[in-house]
Amino acid sequence: MSKFLKSAAVIAAISMISGPAMAEKLGLGRVALPEEIAAWDGEIQPNGIGLPIGSGDALVGEEIFADQCAACHGDFAEGIDNWPKLAGGADTLDRDDPLKTVGSYWPHLSTAFDYIKRSMPYGNAGTLSDDEVYAIVAYILYSNDLIEDDYVLSNETFLDVELPNAKGFIVDNRAEAEYAIWSGEPCMEDCKDDAKVTMRAMVLDVTPEEEKPEVVETAAPVTEAAAEVVEEVAVAAFDPALAEAGKKVFKKCKSCHQLGDGAKNRSGPILTAVVGKAAGAVDGFKYSKPMKAAAGDGLIWTAAELDAFLKKPKAYMKGTKMGFSGLKKEEDRVAIIEYLKSFGE
C-alpha cells in the first residue's frame, strides 16, 4: 500500500466515526407564516415583552379562580392536598421545609402570566382570555397580600409589581463553591475512624410495597340474564351523543376525579358507577363530615341529586370538600350526568 493510500484510509476511518459534515442550507421545510408564529409564540419575558393588552383585578379574579383554579389550589390559593400552594410562605425560605409560592418564591410575575395563560387550567389549558389571566394573577397577588383587591393589573401596571423574592436568586456557582473542594485524589485507606448507621429508611416505612406480578385473567363471564338486564337499562336510559358532550364538560372535573378502569381516588373520589349509588361509599376516600352525615341519612346520587349538587356544591352541601364552584348551565349538568352513566361498572 502506498503512503497516499494509507493516509486516505486513515481519513476514511476518521470520517466513518465523525458526525455529518456541516453542509450548505438544504432548503427543507417552509417559511413560518406570521399568523402561525403569533399562534405559538406566546412566552412572556420578565421585562414584560409579550404581555397582551388587557386588565383585571382581584375582585373579578376571585370568582374566576373559584371556578377554574380552586378545585386544586384552594379557594384562597392555599392549595389542596399535594397540589401547589400559590399563596403564603413569606419569610420561610431560610427555614426547614420552606413554603415556595408565587408570593414567597417566584422571582418574576411574568412567569405566572406566562404559565397560567399557556398551561392552565390543568386539563383545559389555553382556554382563559387575557383579561381572565390578568384577573387571576391579580387574585394570586392579593392572596399573597401583595396588592389591594381593587388594584387593576394590566399590561401597563404589570411591571410596577415586584415580587418579594425577585433578588433571591444567584447564577449557578458550583464551580467556585464546590468543584474546587471536591476534586483531586480521594482517600482510599483509613478515611475515617468509624462508620455507624445514623438513619434507616425502614424506620420511615414510606417505600411502596413490592407488588406481585399481575396475572392477567379473562374476566369471569357474566351470566346471560344479568348481562341482558344491564343492557336493557343501558339502552333505555342512555344517550351517547349527550354523554359525548358530557365528556367535554368533565374536563373540568378530571384533575380531581377519575373514572373507569384503573381509576384511583385523588383529591376527589372515583366516580365510576356513581349515578344511582349511595353517597359517601367509595372505598378509601376520606369524605367531609357533612358528606358522611348525608351518606348516613341514606343519600343516593340520583340524577336529580347530582344535578342539585353540581349546580352549586357549596350551597347544596355546606362544608363539602369539593372545591369546585359548580356548573351554572343546566345543559352542562345534564350532559355530565349522562357521561357518568356511561361508566356503569
Binding site: D94, P98, F169, N173, R174
Partner: peptide, 17 residues
C-alpha cells in the same frame, strides 16, 4: 424559576444549575 432551582440554607436559590 419556581422549579428546578436549588434553595440554599440561607434562603438564596441557585438558578441555571
Amino acid at each position: 424559576t419556581s422549579k428546578y432551582t436549588d434553595t440554599l440554607e440561607n434562603g438564596v436559590s441557585r438558578k441555571w444549575t
